[in-house]
Write a protein that binds this DNA or RNA. Structure first.
Lengths: 137, 137
DNA sequence: AAATTTACTTGCATTTTGCAAGTAATTAAT
DNA sequence: ATTAATTACTTGCAAAATGCAAGTAAATTT
């Protein structure tokens, strides 16, 4: 892994340097929905990430402490990935992105209900989401 | 411009398909801070985007109605870029990203004050920011 | 013991990025 | 009026990232 030079200390920039690509936030999203995922779980997602890209993104996210690896309780052949606190704290970002996209694009039917709840009391929705996720740490 | 195939209707995915890269949100950020920017203004930003990348990102953002071009009042040689309503609505995303990064990374001194204000009353801060920006439309 | 599953890695073609230089249309300076 | 700068890009090319298909090694299942 090469150390990419830091472009600036702007918080937007620092964030983009870590997860500013077309895949990383989908991995984070999967972990927010499912709490724990195996490598295979990520590959099953609708967007069909390539296995080498998945491996490289997981590595970057792990190196930056957004996710951690755990032993799978059932099998040594499996690995569980889960969000760290730092990863969980991206929940507000994920919520706002979702709400933005919902305003301008079609959203799958099954997502609409959650988004309604998020809108009704955004702060509470976010706080509760984070609290729930942190229970699993 | 090639039409990239849609990977899924997930709102996170739809968003990433448009601005999921290392530069687009920096352009959006600049426009949120400065309201209107010329091509040269973007090039002056600390992160030093390459001119061809800037041109291609501006085109994508314009094609997706996040920004618009305006005639510069002073000169036909200049072009003004500004956010559309759809672009302005990304403000909550920008705020949450900033707050996330502030928790885990160094932030330039001059940004700290505004981030404090954002934290103190996030909803009001966001609403006011959006309202102000929409005045310029 | 053999077949399957799981988490990756590898090789290679395609695409995107980044850098440096170039261009065309204004605008400013002489 | 002519020349020099500005401004907003474009172009060419090397380097890096992405995407696809196939391969591998350890564990698990049959």
């Amino acid at each position: 892994m090469k150390t990419s030079k830091k472009r600036s200390d702007c918080p937007i920039n620092r964030s983009l340097e870590i997860w500013g690509d077309k895949w990383s936030l989908l991995i984070i999203r999967d972990l927010m929905f499912k709490k724990q995922c195996t490598y295979g779980d990520f590959l099953k997602s609708e967007e069909k990430i390539a296995t080498n890209i998945l491996a490289s993104r997981l590595l970057v996210l792990e190196e930056n402490d957004l996710i951690t690896k755990l032993d799978h309780p059932d099998s040594k052949a499996k690995v569980l990935y889960q969000l760290t606190e730092k990863g969980i704290e991206l929940f507000p970002v994920i919520v706002e992105i979702s709400l933005w996209a919902e305003k301008y694009y079609e959203v799958p039917e099954e997502r609409k209900l959650v988004l309604e709840k998020a809108k009704q009391n955004k702060a509470a929705f976010i706080e509760k989401g984070i609290r729930k996720m942190k229970e699993g740490l």
